[in-house]
Amino acid sequence: MSETPFLVLSAILFTIGAVGVLTRRNAIVVFMCVELMLNAGNLALITFARTTGTLDGQIAAFFVMVVAAAEVVVGLAIIMTIFRTRRSASVDDASLLKY
């Protein structure tokens, strides 16, 4: 069971997530795409763990999940706050901090 297909899948998912972040305007969808990128990273980490025969990769993936959970909590709270004041969840509408 070679590791390369897993890594290639991981790379493809990561890229799709990145393109999603760049093209979508709904903040929640952007956020979901970020989660997709994190998950792609996790897949690579777990693949590496199997490749090297140690559990450190799995530990790293575990920490990524924890951090992702924390990030989602705060990020969604921010999106809620913005939505409450601006009645919009579009990331392009929050563009006052500029030239």
């Binding site: 990145a18 972040v21 760049l22 093209t23 305007r25 952007v30 990331v91 392009d92 929050a94 563009s95 006052l96 901090l97 500029k98 030239y99």
Partner: peptide, 17 residues
Amino acid sequence: ARRVQNGFVRSYALALL
């Protein structure tokens, strides 16, 4: 040059990528 700072977070993300 400051027009680059257009306030759109997606533009910044594009530059990052």
